[in-house]
Design a protein around this nucleic acid. Structure first.
Lengths: 209, 209, 209, 209
DNA sequence: GATGAATGAGCGTTCATTCAT
DNA sequence: TATGAATGAACGCTCATTCAT
């Protein structure tokens, strides 16, 4: 999902014409990102992708499937990129965390439509979809959890951390940062926030003694 | 917003028939909270509120206006309750932060429908609504900003904090905590997380030296 | 269903505006009768009835419900008219049968659209609908069964008749007669066939010895 | 139409690839018989037949043509089998009628999908198709007509019979019998009804004097 | 104020048919 | 011949909103 394609996790439609599959997903990111899920008729997505309405249903089961597929591709890309980064990050968990934030901010910071999609419109889902979304996001959460655990084991992070709460703090902080960035018009460089965001996550608010 | 109604902060629509106005809002929180914005027809809300469909439009401009109004009432209640709390919190900014978290968690933790509404379904908004939502939330953000500022001035918080980032960390952490709680079924007591959440916000991840 | 209204069995929408309810049913008989169920869009039925598309769904659950309702009204009318007729028919089962045929032929013979509907287009149903159709037709079958039974008891009909087969012969013969009449353009008077049809049903093919 | 294929009477499309032609027809009987005409997409029929969607259009003009062709094959088979039977039936018109009923009941009674097709789903036709259906059925009607005529001439049947009405009684009775059999789940042996059905057709309802 | 019947624009999805390969 | 991807017209149904009573 680096701006123009969905190379990465490809599970569905492998034998299908990848060009159209990706054209539809890319179009959907753009149309949904700008108009919102419920203001993005299939016909609009199809037109943007340069295909007929019916063609969409050759590649996706239904409209929800498009939403899910975008997330799957996005998370897949992010997770595999983080894994790559972590292989050269050394043992420093703070550096590891920084790499994670960097990948996340880079992925969404260079694609406002996608950021708008994940931060705003993806939330327009029903219970059944949220279940699927949760499953897809799991590997991403796992990476965060592992960093936290390593930090606690190595003595860099506090021993009395509640892992789940720490993860929610990390995820929530990144999430809110990106959401604020996209909702204020994506006017500044999201990457410039990597360091201060990591600082506040790692060091908290309190003055060090 | 004392758990079941919207009596309390009422600045707008004071001249309106408060009973029906509140019945509709309370019904909307329940119906939207449980079914989602796009599965919550006006007719369903009206039935739940015990009024006719058309009556809804005597109190609200349109469906979006209901969404906005719920948020306005909710934030209004939360903000005024926080203000109350802060008057007895003394000068300790950590205690002040804790009171803020407590009010937030109490308000949503005792009303799952409302939590579902604010954390999930409120996100189903278009650009114009998001603008309004931003305006409504501002006073809430302001309280957080003021606590941060006082913390920095008093030397309890780090001098090099970026206020906006700190605020996003605080808000994002609370937000993610509540969202996780509601999406996993609200099975545990949200209030039990107040202390560890505050700890991680204030102290960050790093072991104190 | 005497040409312009559906007075008779009224179970649904009793409190609703009967005028529109009947207008839609009458329009549906006409449109479906002439174009067929699958070539009769709701929009066409609505236009013919002089209402908006959505109005149809205030009176009927869905398109299938219209089909079922027409049949219910029709059978209801026919059954109650037959009951009336039988009260003045005396004990002669042949006369009773003749009255039954007469009511049936009169009802459909004076309303070709309705005949087309019941004889041709009603068959365009799925399994679930056929179940409902069967239930609705039951009272009509019952009347036939009772006549047959009385005929056997009184010694006018053969003792070794299989009731179900006799009923199918009676129904099948009437059905086929009306279908042939309607499919050849309803050019002759259906009522003129009452006597010969009854003769062949009662006397069969064989020459009396 | 010997139970599972259309080998036999093949007058049309003889130059066509018989294997695929028949595979498609057999598949269509099965799919349409079980799902109904409007729930039987060409794609489903093609898959069942083991050919590509487009291939269907090499053998049939359109979807309606499949329907018509099935009927043509079916009626063709039935008519030629009746002709065979009649050659060994002697001069007894009652025996001739019995043979006709037997062939009809055997053909459909051993192939529920085909019975479902002819008795239920074939009815889903438009005006143009009904015209064609009428033409195809004509030879079948003719056989019935001829039996009736012979019966009248030989003095076995009544002189004052109306031929068309007699034919409709015969056809309608058989039709209704098979329809009732198939719609109640084809649970009993259709052939067991041959004698009582013939009896009621020939002897009518009235007790013989 | 209150009602609720009526409206009609809008959208997701299906599927018969075509045609380039 | 055979394929099957692609098309796009068509339709059932929903629901926010209005307005006569």
């Amino acid at each position: 999902m680096n701006g123009h394609s969905f190379i990465g996790v490809r599970t569905i439609a492998q034998k299908k014409n990848n060009e159209k599959y990706e054209a539809i997903l890319t179009a959907a990111v753009k149309v949904i990102g700008q108009a919102g899920y419920h203001n993005a008729p299939i016909s609009k997505i199809a037109r943007e992708a340069g295909v007929a309405d019916g063609t969409v249903y050759l590649y996706f089961k239904n409209k929800e499937d498009i939403l899910i597929s975008i997330l799957r591709e996005t998370i897949g890309t992010i997770v595999s990129r983080i894994h790559e980064e972590l292989q050269t990050a050394g043992d420093d968990v703070v550096e590891q965390l920084k790499r994670l934030v960097t990948v996340y901010f880079e992925t969404l910071g260079t694609n406002p439509d996608l950021a708008m999609f994940t931060q705003v419109h993806l939330r327009q889902s029903n219970a059944e979809m949220r279940k699927q979304i949760g499953d897809i996001i799991k590997p991403y959460y796992q990476i965060i959890d592992e960093i936290i655990e390593r930090g606690m084991k190595s003595g860099v992070f506090r021993q009395n951390l509640d892992g789940r709460i720490a993860r929610r703090m990390i995820f929530g902080t990144m999430d809110e940062t990106i959401t604020a960035w996209i909702l204020t018009g994506a006017k500044y460089d999201l990457l410039s926030l990597i360091t201060p965001v990591c600082d506040v996550m790692v060091g908290g608010l309190r003055k060090q003694v």
